[in-house]
Amino acid sequence: MSQSILTARIMEALGAGRKALIPFLPGGFPDKERFFDELAALDAGGADIIEIGVPFSDPVADGPVVEQASLDCLLNGTCLSWLFYELEKRKGQYRAGLVLMGYYNPFLQYGLEQLAADAADAGVAGFIVPDLPLEESGPMREALERYGLDLIPLVGLNTSEERLAAYAKNARGYVYFVSVLGTTGMRESLPTEVKERLAAVRRIFSVPVALGFGIKSPEQLYAFGDLVDGVVFGSALIAHIKAGGTAAEFMARWRG
């Protein structure tokens, strides 16, 4: 199978001597117009991968910031068909690899085969589905693979080595390590066990490792040295934009 675009983008960042930057922006946030401005600004500002949130009425893995943004986007009419339509118009404009992150039900109702086909047409390279653990991931992963798309696994502090190994078997793109036993949202500090678990993840997976959930500032990464290849930030970016800031400013701070 061809090399994943997502893996390639992270390797490029590492080659340039930095961590890959992976912002998360809810689709249709802060509104349907400005979303594509912010997306372009993230891309121009040095994002290597951009995770675009697909809103769902019942986001169980999210904290209050992402949940509220997601519910607002539902109200403004953001949906998968709109995202695909608009992304396809802009296909090829972004250097960053694009990933859709959302809950399983909207994807399932869209139809997994159609989803994979339309995502590929729109220039999307992968999916993250927070409520789709290993046991249930077969049908979606197979549909995505037929179109060369990646299903990014999410693992965490309580994922056993046995389960890590099972995820690693099919992992493509990168592995997303959830840094807290909790939901998305900013934390002042990360648990001390993170480092230990990351070492196991590094050992077991051959794809790059991204760290996310609870990340607020670049300084939080210093402790992990070479154990992480990329960093995902969501709530901090949303809060920044909500407070009147722009994606461009935000990226400048992270590029250092």
Partner: peptide
Amino acid sequence: KKGYYGDFGGQFVPELLMPP
């Protein structure tokens, strides 16, 4: 499959909830 009644059931939860 484990936890299924015909086509219904399963474990559609975040990985972090699989251990409990």
